[in-house]
Simulated scan of single mutants.
Amino acid sequence: MTEYEIACLGKTRFTSRSAGRRRARQIRGEGGPRFHTYRCPFCHGVHLAHQLGHATYLRDTPYGPTLIQEYAT
């Protein structure tokens, strides 16, 4: 995967940080994970990202996908 695919492709683009924060609060209110907003260096829009310690995702390995839990350091 390229840096662009990881950072931008397939993510919702918000026009402002306030719109992104509003959506993050809505997701959290529905019982979802905590998110924060960041400015994308590729599309210059705003995306949501998991807060450190709250991300659970699959990482592709030669032996198939592996569940990863991010922990705050």
Results as ranks from 00 to 15, higher is better:
Arg34Ala: 15
Arg13Tyr: 03
Arg28Phe: 09
Arg39Tyr: 12
Thr15Phe: 12
Leu52Val: 11
Ala49Leu: 06
Leu9Gln: 12
Ile27Ala: 04
Arg34Gln: 15
Leu9Pro: 01
His36Ile: 11
Ile27Pro: 07
Gly45Phe: 02
Arg39Cys: 06
Gln26Cys: 12
Arg13Asn: 09
Ser18His: 14
Cys43Glu: 00
Gly20Tyr: 00
Phe35Asn: 04
Ala19Glu: 09
Pro33Thr: 14
Arg23Lys: 12
Gly10Phe: 08
Val46Lys: 02
His44Pro: 03
Val46Thr: 08
Cys40Met: 07
Gln26His: 15
Ala49Tyr: 06
Gly32Lys: 02
Tyr4Leu: 08
Gly31Glu: 13
Ala19Asp: 08
Leu9Cys: 02
Arg25Ser: 12
Thr2Val: 01
Ala19Tyr: 04
Glu30Asp: 14
Glu5Ile: 03
Phe42His: 08
Thr2Pro: 04
Val46Arg: 00
Glu30Pro: 11
His47Lys: 03
His36Val: 13
Tyr38Gln: 05
Phe42Val: 01
Arg39Asn: 09
Ala24His: 10
Gly45Glu: 00
Arg28Ser: 08
His36Asp: 14
Leu52Ser: 10
Arg25Trp: 09
Gly29Gln: 02
Phe14Ser: 11
Phe42Gly: 02
His36Ser: 14
Lys11Glu: 05
Glu5Tyr: 04
Cys43Ala: 03
Gln26Met: 15
Gly20Arg: 01
Ile6Pro: 03
Arg21His: 07
Glu5Lys: 00
Gln26Asp: 14
Val46Ile: 15
Gln26Asn: 12
Gly29Leu: 00
Cys40His: 06
Arg17Val: 14
Ser18Gly: 07
Gln26Arg: 14
Glu5His: 01
Ala19Met: 06
Thr15Lys: 13
Gln26Pro: 09
Cys8Glu: 05
Gly29Tyr: 06
His44Asn: 06
Gly20Ser: 06
Cys40Leu: 10
Thr37Asn: 10
Gln51Ser: 09
Gly20Leu: 07
Lys11Gly: 02
Cys40Asn: 02
His44Trp: 00
Thr2Ser: 11
Gln26Val: 12
Tyr4Ser: 00
His36Phe: 13
Tyr38Asn: 12
His44Met: 09
Arg17Ala: 13
